[in-house]
Protein backbone atom coordinates (compact mmCIF):
# COMPACT_ATOMS: atom_id res chain seq x y z
CA UNK A 1 0.00 0.00 0.00
CA UNK A 2 1.27 3.41 -0.93
CA UNK A 3 0.98 6.17 1.57
CA UNK A 4 0.78 9.87 0.91
CA UNK A 5 0.52 12.71 3.32
CA UNK A 6 -1.08 16.01 2.58
CA UNK A 7 -2.86 18.89 4.23
CA UNK A 8 -5.70 21.15 3.18
CA UNK A 9 -5.92 24.86 2.78
CA UNK A 10 -8.53 27.07 1.22
CA UNK A 11 -6.03 28.18 -1.39
CA UNK A 12 -4.67 25.86 -4.10
CA UNK A 13 -1.10 25.72 -2.73
CA UNK A 14 -1.54 22.42 -0.93
CA UNK A 15 -1.83 20.62 -4.23
CA UNK A 16 1.82 21.13 -5.23
CA UNK A 17 3.15 18.85 -2.56
CA UNK A 18 0.56 16.13 -3.08
CA UNK A 19 0.91 16.14 -6.85
CA UNK A 20 4.66 15.91 -6.53
CA UNK A 21 4.52 13.11 -4.03
CA UNK A 22 2.08 11.08 -6.08
CA UNK A 23 3.87 11.78 -9.30
CA UNK A 24 0.72 13.22 -10.78
CA UNK A 25 0.40 16.11 -13.13
CA UNK A 26 -0.98 19.40 -11.87
CA UNK A 27 -2.87 21.37 -14.48
CA UNK A 28 -3.76 25.00 -14.08
CA UNK A 29 -3.54 24.78 -10.27
CA UNK A 30 -6.84 22.94 -10.38
CA UNK A 31 -6.63 19.46 -11.77
CA UNK A 32 -4.38 16.70 -10.50
CA UNK A 33 -4.23 13.82 -12.93
CA UNK A 34 -3.49 10.53 -11.25
CA UNK A 35 -0.29 8.81 -12.50
CA UNK A 36 -0.86 5.60 -14.40
CA UNK A 37 0.82 3.33 -11.87
CA UNK A 38 -1.83 4.23 -9.30
CA UNK A 39 -4.90 4.21 -11.42
CA UNK A 40 -6.94 6.40 -13.64
CA UNK A 41 -8.73 9.59 -12.83
CA UNK A 42 -8.29 13.06 -11.46
CA UNK A 43 -9.20 15.56 -8.84
CA UNK A 44 -10.44 19.09 -9.31
CA UNK A 45 -9.94 21.89 -6.84
CA UNK A 46 -11.52 25.30 -6.93
CA UNK A 47 -11.93 28.23 -4.62
CA UNK A 48 -15.54 29.35 -4.55
CA UNK A 49 -15.74 32.32 -2.26
CA UNK A 50 -13.42 33.46 0.47
CA UNK A 51 -13.86 30.78 3.10
CA UNK A 52 -15.28 28.04 0.89
CA UNK A 53 -13.39 25.74 -1.46
CA UNK A 54 -14.31 22.51 -3.16
CA UNK A 55 -12.35 19.41 -4.14
CA UNK A 56 -13.95 16.96 -6.52
CA UNK A 57 -12.44 13.49 -6.93
CA UNK A 58 -13.28 11.00 -9.58
CA UNK A 59 -10.96 8.06 -10.09
CA UNK A 60 -10.51 4.31 -10.28
CA UNK A 61 -7.53 3.00 -8.35
CA UNK A 62 -5.50 -0.02 -9.32
CA UNK A 63 -3.04 0.16 -6.43
CA UNK A 64 -4.27 0.59 -2.88
CA UNK A 65 -3.35 3.94 -1.42
CA UNK A 66 -3.81 5.68 1.85
CA UNK A 67 -3.99 9.41 2.07
CA UNK A 68 -3.00 10.80 5.42
CA UNK A 69 -4.35 14.24 5.99
CA UNK A 70 -2.29 16.21 8.44
CA UNK A 71 -3.92 18.74 10.62
CA UNK A 72 -3.19 22.27 9.64
CA UNK A 73 -3.39 25.65 11.23
CA UNK A 74 -6.39 26.99 9.42
CA UNK A 75 -9.68 26.35 11.07
CA UNK A 76 -11.71 24.31 8.64
CA UNK A 77 -14.54 21.89 8.48
CA UNK A 78 -14.33 19.26 5.80
CA UNK A 79 -17.61 18.09 4.32
CA UNK A 80 -17.02 14.81 2.61
CA UNK A 81 -19.78 13.73 0.24
CA UNK A 82 -19.17 10.23 -1.06
CA UNK A 83 -20.99 8.80 -4.01
CA UNK A 84 -18.75 5.87 -4.80
CA UNK A 85 -20.12 2.55 -5.88
CA UNK A 86 -18.20 0.85 -3.13
CA UNK A 87 -17.60 1.95 0.43
CA UNK A 88 -14.30 3.65 1.20
CA UNK A 89 -12.69 3.94 4.59
CA UNK A 90 -11.98 7.02 6.61
CA UNK A 91 -9.81 6.51 9.63
CA UNK A 92 -9.96 8.89 12.55
CA UNK A 93 -8.20 8.30 15.83
CA UNK A 94 -7.46 4.71 14.79
CA UNK A 95 -11.09 3.91 14.22
CA UNK A 96 -12.23 2.96 10.75
CA UNK A 97 -15.43 4.45 9.45
CA UNK A 98 -17.00 3.15 6.30
CA UNK A 99 -18.37 5.70 3.96
CA UNK A 100 -20.27 5.61 0.68
CA UNK A 101 -23.74 6.13 -0.61
CA UNK A 102 -24.09 2.40 -1.16
CA UNK A 103 -24.24 1.88 2.58
CA UNK A 104 -26.43 4.92 3.04
CA UNK A 105 -23.80 6.92 4.79
CA UNK A 106 -22.38 9.26 2.26
CA UNK A 107 -21.75 12.39 4.24
CA UNK A 108 -19.04 12.99 6.76
CA UNK A 109 -18.13 16.20 8.51
CA UNK A 110 -14.62 16.26 9.86
CA UNK A 111 -12.78 18.98 11.66
CA UNK A 112 -9.47 19.93 10.13
CA UNK A 113 -7.91 20.04 13.58
CA UNK A 114 -7.90 16.26 13.71
CA UNK A 115 -5.82 14.00 11.51
CA UNK A 116 -7.57 11.48 9.38
CA UNK A 117 -6.77 9.15 6.55
CA UNK A 118 -8.74 8.19 3.51
CA UNK A 119 -8.54 4.77 1.90
CA UNK A 120 -10.54 4.59 -1.31
CA UNK A 121 -11.69 1.21 -2.57
CA UNK A 122 -9.65 -0.44 -5.32
CA UNK A 123 -10.87 -1.16 -8.83
CA UNK A 124 -14.07 0.71 -8.15
CA UNK A 125 -15.03 4.16 -9.24
CA UNK A 126 -14.56 6.58 -6.39
CA UNK A 127 -16.53 9.77 -6.59
CA UNK A 128 -16.31 12.22 -3.76
CA UNK A 129 -16.78 15.89 -3.25
CA UNK A 130 -15.08 17.62 -0.39
CA UNK A 131 -16.09 21.06 0.71
CA UNK A 132 -13.65 22.98 2.83
CA UNK A 133 -15.45 25.58 4.86
CA UNK A 134 -13.98 28.13 7.21
CA UNK A 135 -15.17 27.47 10.75
CA UNK A 136 -15.89 31.10 11.40
CA UNK A 137 -18.01 31.32 8.30
CA UNK A 138 -20.03 28.23 9.15
CA UNK A 139 -20.58 29.37 12.69
CA UNK A 140 -21.88 32.64 11.36
CA UNK A 141 -24.39 30.80 9.21
CA UNK A 142 -25.53 28.83 12.20
CA UNK A 143 -25.57 31.78 14.53
CA UNK A 144 -28.19 33.52 12.47
CA UNK A 145 -30.73 31.05 13.68
CA UNK A 146 -32.42 31.15 17.06
CA UNK A 147 -30.33 29.38 19.65
CA UNK A 148 -33.11 27.35 21.12
CA UNK A 149 -33.83 25.75 17.83
CA UNK A 150 -30.17 25.17 17.30
CA UNK A 151 -29.95 23.19 20.53
CA UNK A 152 -32.71 20.88 19.41
CA UNK A 153 -31.05 20.10 16.16
CA UNK A 154 -29.64 16.77 15.29
CA UNK A 155 -26.19 18.06 14.68
CA UNK A 156 -24.05 20.17 16.88
CA UNK A 157 -20.62 20.76 15.57
CA UNK A 158 -18.32 21.43 18.45
CA UNK A 159 -14.72 20.70 19.10
CA UNK A 160 -15.35 17.54 21.06
CA UNK A 161 -17.02 15.80 18.18
CA UNK A 162 -14.36 14.76 15.75
CA UNK A 163 -16.62 13.20 13.27
CA UNK A 164 -20.19 13.29 12.26
CA UNK A 165 -21.80 11.25 9.61
CA UNK A 166 -25.13 10.77 7.95
CA UNK A 167 -26.78 9.89 4.69
CA UNK A 168 -26.91 12.45 1.92
CA UNK A 169 -30.33 13.91 1.29
CA UNK A 170 -31.90 13.18 -2.07
CA UNK A 171 -31.55 16.61 -3.55
CA UNK A 172 -27.86 16.75 -2.76
CA UNK A 173 -27.50 13.27 -4.12
CA UNK A 174 -28.96 14.39 -7.41
CA UNK A 175 -26.63 17.35 -7.51
CA UNK A 176 -23.54 15.22 -7.06
CA UNK A 177 -24.90 12.68 -9.52
CA UNK A 178 -25.09 15.41 -12.10
CA UNK A 179 -21.36 16.02 -11.66
CA UNK A 180 -20.70 12.45 -12.71
CA UNK A 181 -21.68 13.09 -16.26
CA UNK A 182 -19.58 16.24 -16.68
CA UNK A 183 -15.99 16.31 -17.72
CA UNK A 184 -13.59 18.21 -15.49
CA UNK A 185 -11.70 19.30 -18.57
CA UNK A 186 -14.74 21.06 -19.86
CA UNK A 187 -14.54 24.81 -19.56
CA UNK A 188 -17.89 25.17 -17.91
CA UNK A 189 -17.04 22.66 -15.19
CA UNK A 190 -15.54 25.21 -12.86
CA UNK A 191 -18.61 27.43 -12.43
CA UNK A 192 -20.78 24.32 -12.41
CA UNK A 193 -18.87 22.80 -9.53
CA UNK A 194 -18.99 26.09 -7.69
CA UNK A 195 -22.74 26.26 -8.06
CA UNK A 196 -23.25 22.67 -7.01
CA UNK A 197 -21.01 23.08 -3.98
CA UNK A 198 -22.87 26.15 -2.76
CA UNK A 199 -26.17 24.38 -3.22
CA UNK A 200 -24.91 21.40 -1.25
CA UNK A 201 -23.85 23.64 1.58
CA UNK A 202 -27.21 25.38 1.43
CA UNK A 203 -28.99 22.04 1.56
CA UNK A 204 -26.89 20.92 4.48
CA UNK A 205 -27.57 24.04 6.48
CA UNK A 206 -31.21 23.96 5.55
CA UNK A 207 -31.54 20.44 6.70
CA UNK A 208 -30.05 20.98 10.09
CA UNK A 209 -31.23 24.46 10.81
CA UNK A 210 -34.64 24.74 9.32
CA UNK A 211 -37.34 23.42 11.58
CA UNK A 212 -39.77 23.59 8.68
CA UNK A 213 -37.85 20.72 7.18
CA UNK A 214 -39.60 18.42 9.64
CA UNK A 215 -41.89 16.41 7.46
CA UNK A 216 -45.53 17.15 7.49
CA UNK A 217 -46.73 13.62 7.96
CA UNK A 218 -50.34 14.10 7.04
CA UNK A 219 -50.85 14.89 3.40
CA UNK A 220 -53.41 17.38 2.19
CA UNK A 221 -55.54 14.66 0.63
CA UNK A 222 -55.70 12.82 3.92
CA UNK A 223 -56.57 15.93 5.90
CA UNK A 224 -59.33 16.61 3.44
CA UNK A 225 -60.73 13.10 3.81
CA UNK A 226 -60.64 13.31 7.59
CA UNK A 227 -62.41 16.64 7.50
CA UNK A 228 -65.04 15.17 5.26
CA UNK A 229 -65.88 12.49 7.82
CA UNK A 230 -65.90 15.13 10.53
CA UNK A 231 -68.48 17.15 8.64
CA UNK A 232 -70.46 13.97 8.15
CA UNK A 233 -70.45 13.34 11.88
CA UNK A 234 -71.56 16.88 12.62
CA UNK A 235 -74.37 16.62 10.11
CA UNK A 236 -75.67 13.42 11.65
CA UNK A 237 -75.62 14.21 15.33
CA UNK A 238 -79.18 12.95 15.78
CA UNK A 239 -78.22 9.51 14.54
CA UNK A 240 -76.28 6.80 16.34
CA UNK A 241 -72.50 6.67 15.85
CA UNK A 242 -71.91 5.38 12.30
CA UNK A 243 -68.98 3.06 13.26
CA UNK A 244 -65.31 3.43 12.46
CA UNK A 245 -65.29 0.97 9.55
CA UNK A 246 -67.98 3.03 7.88
CA UNK A 247 -66.11 6.29 8.41
CA UNK A 248 -62.77 4.89 7.34
CA UNK A 249 -64.34 3.62 4.17
CA UNK A 250 -65.66 7.07 3.54
CA UNK A 251 -62.17 8.52 4.01
CA UNK A 252 -60.69 5.84 1.80
CA UNK A 253 -58.27 4.37 4.28
CA UNK A 254 -57.93 1.47 6.67
CA UNK A 255 -59.73 1.74 10.04
CA UNK A 256 -56.48 1.79 11.99
CA UNK A 257 -54.96 4.50 9.82
CA UNK A 258 -58.18 6.46 10.01
CA UNK A 259 -58.28 6.32 13.80
CA UNK A 260 -54.63 7.34 14.01
CA UNK A 261 -55.00 10.31 11.70
CA UNK A 262 -58.26 11.39 13.32
CA UNK A 263 -56.57 11.47 16.66
CA UNK A 264 -53.71 13.49 15.23
CA UNK A 265 -56.03 16.04 13.70
CA UNK A 266 -58.62 16.45 16.47
CA UNK A 267 -56.91 15.07 19.52
CA UNK A 268 -59.78 12.71 20.17
CA UNK A 269 -61.15 9.41 18.90
CA UNK A 270 -63.99 9.56 16.37
CA UNK A 271 -66.47 8.22 18.89
CA UNK A 272 -65.45 10.57 21.69
CA UNK A 273 -65.55 13.46 19.31
CA UNK A 274 -69.03 12.43 18.22
CA UNK A 275 -70.35 12.06 21.78
CA UNK A 276 -68.86 15.38 22.77
CA UNK A 277 -70.56 17.16 19.92
CA UNK A 278 -73.78 15.34 20.76
CA UNK A 279 -73.62 16.59 24.31
CA UNK A 280 -73.03 20.13 23.15
CA UNK A 281 -76.16 19.76 21.06
CA UNK A 282 -77.96 18.32 24.08
CA UNK A 283 -77.29 21.46 26.17
CA UNK A 284 -78.80 23.50 23.40
CA UNK A 285 -81.88 21.29 23.32
CA UNK A 286 -82.14 21.27 27.10
CA UNK A 287 -82.12 25.03 27.27
CA UNK A 288 -84.38 25.54 24.31
CA UNK A 289 -87.55 25.02 26.29
CA UNK A 290 -89.12 23.05 23.48
CA UNK A 291 -89.44 19.76 25.37
CA UNK A 292 -91.56 18.49 28.19
CA UNK A 293 -89.35 15.70 29.51
CA UNK A 294 -85.73 14.66 29.39
CA UNK A 295 -86.76 11.40 27.79
CA UNK A 296 -88.07 13.28 24.81
CA UNK A 297 -84.67 14.83 24.30
CA UNK A 298 -82.72 11.64 24.68
CA UNK A 299 -84.92 9.91 22.16
CA UNK A 300 -84.32 12.82 19.84
CA UNK A 301 -80.59 12.25 20.23
CA UNK A 302 -80.97 8.54 19.73
CA UNK A 303 -80.23 7.42 23.27
CA UNK A 304 -82.40 4.72 24.72
CA UNK A 305 -81.41 4.89 28.37
CA UNK A 306 -81.72 8.06 30.37
CA UNK A 307 -79.18 6.93 32.93
CA UNK A 308 -76.54 6.36 30.27
CA UNK A 309 -77.15 9.79 28.81
CA UNK A 310 -76.92 11.37 32.24
CA UNK A 311 -73.56 9.73 32.94
CA UNK A 312 -72.13 10.93 29.65
CA UNK A 313 -73.48 14.38 30.25
CA UNK A 314 -72.03 14.51 33.70
CA UNK A 315 -68.66 13.30 32.42
CA UNK A 316 -68.40 16.26 30.16
CA UNK A 317 -70.00 19.16 32.02
CA UNK A 318 -69.95 17.94 35.63
CA UNK A 319 -73.61 18.87 35.91
CA UNK A 320 -76.76 16.85 35.78
CA UNK A 321 -78.91 17.33 32.68
CA UNK A 322 -81.85 18.13 34.89
CA UNK A 323 -80.02 21.20 36.21
CA UNK A 324 -79.83 22.65 32.71
CA UNK A 325 -83.28 21.59 31.70
CA UNK A 326 -85.80 24.26 30.84
CA UNK A 327 -89.26 22.84 30.67
CA UNK A 328 -91.63 23.68 27.89
CA UNK A 329 -93.96 26.42 28.89
CA UNK A 330 -97.41 25.82 27.62
CA UNK A 331 -98.74 29.21 28.49
CA UNK A 332 -97.18 31.81 26.32
CA UNK A 333 -96.58 34.71 28.60
CA UNK A 334 -95.12 37.09 26.11
CA UNK A 335 -96.56 37.76 22.73
CA UNK A 336 -94.28 36.52 19.97
CA UNK A 337 -91.71 39.10 19.13
CA UNK A 338 -90.82 37.96 15.71
CA UNK A 339 -92.77 38.86 12.66
CA UNK A 340 -94.11 36.08 10.57
CA UNK A 341 -93.53 36.48 6.92
Amino acid sequence: MKKFTHFYSLTPEWQYQLAKEMGGELIDNKIIVLPENLGEGHSFFTQITPGISALFMDFVLTTPIKMNRLKSDNELYIFHFDLSDHPSIIKIDNIDYKIGSSINLGLAVISNAIESSFKPAINERTIALRLLVDKKLLNEFIKNHPTEEYAKRKIKIDKNVPYYYDNIDSNSLLLIQSLKSKSVFDASFDPYLKGISLKLLGNFLNRYTDSVAVKNEITEVETEAINKTKTYLLDHLYNPFPSVPFLSKMAGMSPSKYKMLFKKEFNSTPNNFFVQEKMLLATKLLQSGDYNTLTEIIYELNYSKLSYFCTKYYDLFHRKPSEDFVKKNRVIKKPEVYIKI
Partner: peptide, 12 residues
Protein backbone atom coordinates in the same frame (compact mmCIF):
# COMPACT_ATOMS: atom_id res chain seq x y z
CA UNK B 1 -25.91 30.66 -0.82
CA UNK B 2 -28.61 29.44 -3.15
CA UNK B 3 -28.61 32.64 -5.17
CA UNK B 4 -24.85 32.45 -5.55
CA UNK B 5 -25.12 28.81 -6.52
CA UNK B 6 -27.76 29.64 -9.11
CA UNK B 7 -25.57 32.37 -10.58
CA UNK B 8 -22.66 29.97 -10.95
CA UNK B 9 -24.79 27.23 -12.46
CA UNK B 10 -26.50 29.59 -14.86
CA UNK B 11 -23.19 31.03 -15.97
CA UNK B 12 -21.80 27.56 -16.45
Amino acid sequence: LNIRATVHLLLS
